[in-house]
Design a protein around this nucleic acid. Structure first.
Lengths: 231, 231
DNA sequence: AGTGGGGATACTGTATACAGGATCCTAAGC
DNA sequence: GCTTAGGATCCTGTATACAGTATCCCCACT
């Protein structure tokens, strides 16, 4: 997170130290998002440990972390399983996301600095380019980065801590549903509302965006369900 | 929590099994809330392990859990410390609490069953009695239970999972500030709004309640700060 | 052929052991 | 007297080891 945040001149040798558990957690999360471990997959500690060349303990702690992030569910004495997001889970995810993103947007409107706004604008530019180039991967990443940045503009660390894992699950969901929708106009309008400094306007845009997004995912899921009725 | 909640007729031998890590976590959380471990206290794994008569591992996992709940902060290779809630932390806590409790209240208004409403009403009665008897401890517990129940009425498990630890920290804060305020009229009005079935009204009441609560805590903290300017 | 029991197996839960980094104290130098 | 280098100590990070429980498969019995 904050590499050398304070004491700018200080020597900070091996500042990029990260405990094994964190690196394992990141790796496993990525595998879940990338569908290497589809829903229902059992995460067996010994297996993963052997595969990554570490002992069971870091794996164990990583799995616990993923549990608190909502990616896996563990049953006592039975181990961890990658969760399947039910329709209700998705609805709840969007319920909470909407509430928190509206708050983030409001606070961003009143607290964002000019430099921060510039940075977000540059992300939008990146998204535009990816869209024109037809690069779906880059577009998806830019869209994810956009949401992350809006979150930072709120200057509310608790909000960030809560919303980040939720967005992780949403991105997971969106990747499952296929190619990223064209959200460029949406994001632009939302961003301008924040940049205008009006908390009210920013809130309205955030809510609108969240609802549109929810509808898109609903449709995609309904489609997918029609294709694979029972699986 | 939910001992043998589902499958009423099923044999569920040792249903009350709980991994050591969970029992240790509960114990440590309680100690933090009860101010046995005041803010700034270092939680040394070996110490706690010896004291509780378990090995370091369950303690380690418990500490990780408390970290994700926001009670402690761990620095790599340095260990865990009970956090001190800064003024900004408190504000953020209330920001998020307000947003989520408004959502919970809205959903409760449209989803709560008659049986559930009866249960909440009985909690209010308990609070009333505690208030009349001047039993501050019981009043505080009833108020905490009230919030927990409202949360359940929302029938939104994600919302509950997110809000529970936040409320834990709020209760911690409120206990630090001394005797529980008289929130009976407030809670009653809020409850009636939910019982009326109007999402809009329920949302308004929830917001009002959250804001009042925030003001109370602000005043208490300002007072405490005046008494202990630097500590 | 179907069902129930017994044992093997696989995995988690917990304990112990060891390695390496951070802190703190002491002592020497300025 | 103050500062700083060196080492001892403490504590976390990680690995290994053992115990106990759940699952599964196979075989015997009905």
């Amino acid at each position: 997170m904050s590499r050398q945040a304070d004491a700018p001149g200080a020597f900070d040798i091996d500042a990029d130290y990260k405990p094994l558990r964190d690196r394992v957690r990141d790796e496993l999360r990525q595998r879940i998002i990338d569908d290497v471990y589809p829903a229902g997959t059992r995460l067996v500690e010994t297996e993963i440990a052997a595969q990554l060349g570490v002992s069971r303990l870091p794996v164990r702690e990583a799995i616990r972390a993923l549990e608190s992030e909502g990616f896996v569910k563990t049953i006592p004495r039975r181990g961890a399983v990658v969760v399947e997001l039910s329709a209700q889970d998705v609805e709840e995810l969007f319920d909470v996301r909407e509430a928190l993103e509206v708050l983030a947007s409001q606070q961003a409107a009143t607290r964002a600095t000019k430099a921060e706004l510039r940075r977000v604008r540059s992300i939008l530019t990146r998204a535009r380019k990816a869209l024109d180039a037809g690069d779906h991967i880059a577009l998806g990443k830019a869209n994810e980065a956009f949401h992350d940045e809006i979150l930072k503009l709120s200057h509310n660390t608790l909000l960030q801590a809560l919303l980040e894992p939720l967005q992780g699950r949403l991105h997971w969901l969106l990747r499952q549903t296929g190619d990223p929708y064209d959200l460029f106009e949406e994001h632009s309008a939302w961003f301008e509302a924040i940049a205008s400094g009006s908390a009210h306007l920013a809130a309205e845009r955030a809510r609108e965006h969240a609802r549109l997004n929810r509808e898109i995912v609903r449709k995609l899921l309904a489609e997918r369900h029609r294709q694979t009725p029972s699986a």
